[in-house]
Design a protein around this nucleic acid. Sequence first.
DNA 1: GAATAATCTAGACATCGTCTAGTTTGGAGG
DNA 2: CCTCCAAACTAGACGATGTCTAGATTATTC
Lengths: 213, 213
Amino acid sequence: MNQMADRTYHHGDLKAALLAAARSIVEEEGADAFTLREAARRAGVSHGAPAHHFGDKTGLLTQLAAQIMNERVELVESAKVAAGMEPMDQLKACGIAHINFLISHPHLEGLCWRDNLINRSDPALLDALHRMTAGLIETMSAVTGKDLDPDKEANPSTVLAIAVVHGFAQMVNERIILRDVPDDERPFRALAMANDMLDLVGEAFGTADRQGA
Amino acid sequence: MNQMADRTYHHGDLKAALLAAARSIVEEEGADAFTLREAARRAGVSHGAPAHHFGDKTGLLTQLAAQIMNERVELVESAKVAAGMEPMDQLKACGIAHINFLISHPHLEGLCWRDNLINRSDPALLDALHRMTAGLIETMSAVTGKDLDPDKEANPSTVLAIAVVHGFAQMVNERIILRDVPDDERPFRALAMANDMLDLVGEAFGTADRQGA
DNA sequence: GAATAATCTAGACATCGTCTAGTTTGGAGG
DNA sequence: CCTCCAAACTAGACGATGTCTAGATTATTC
């Protein structure tokens, strides 16, 4: 083929190139628009090449999803550190950081929950998910004053926190709210709205430790 | 073909048969598993037949999605009526009804937000969505004592309510919580957890007229 | 420097959505 | 009752996709 004339038979770092191609496809056109053949085309290799590095389509997208999840966890952790020492400030910063990521990369986020496209049982993915919840529960322990088990997520406060963040992001991304706001204004408006909402939730957490667990 | 021997050339009510087939496919195997050809197979017609009634794949799934959305709205409205006159009771009943539907039919729910599979701008779909938010805002007006505009969704309380419900359902369906609970026990456990969570949220609404609900 | 493993190509196959041309049937108007 | 038209349906084709297989090319190791 012509397009491959200017490279050697062996690509060199095809694995990374395919992941990058996949990321741009998913980010621009959504997870459903991704095809192995298009990724191969963008990397300048034949349609069969990806199989050698990732096995199949699911394998490639699973690695991409793990990459994305870890990026998100790190962004949230940074925001938490930057928020100072006050637990409630940290919690809110985490919430805003999550929402900011989710509405900034809706398609990448969407990939991470698609059972038919990725392997949700992949160790790297489970690990990233665990890091995410553990970090939140740690913060939540400080806020409520209770010593919550980082390996157990099932207390009402923690569940509420995750639900609010994910639900809000979904509402923005699915255009359930802010439907008519121009695109360049949406992130700002969404974050402002998230701010108001999280303040409201904060009142619930303030009362949480008065009741039994 | 053999399977079509026992019916006339004209099916009679192919449109309904295809919608029913589509529903069972989506419900059992998820929206991604749906194919026009399989739906046609289940209805006992050729693979080209669906086009005449729905145009294309998106057309069929869009009609199915509208059907599902309307079912959900009606279930929630029933629950609200059954909850009595107390606004806070009504609000909680709505939340539980939403969550109950969402975790009972995760795949059907999933279909309703898939941009690549359905036409989110379809009038019937938009109408169902509007009915859903309007009903909630009505209830929310009674709870907060404020006269909220049913055509505007953007006040913190309402946003929080929708976010919590959708977020919680997503957490259950995506196995972020209750991952190791056996399937037959999950709905019960999930609803109990939803109950606790919604009680917590109730405090955030600052209901002055709340009386030991 | 040769043997072996890794990497990549190229073609095949089944399946999918959609298009087109042709066949069957129900029903309206005479 | 008959004719004729439009709606309903069939059947084959096309391009695209994921995956498999056999073979070609290159890196690496001994």
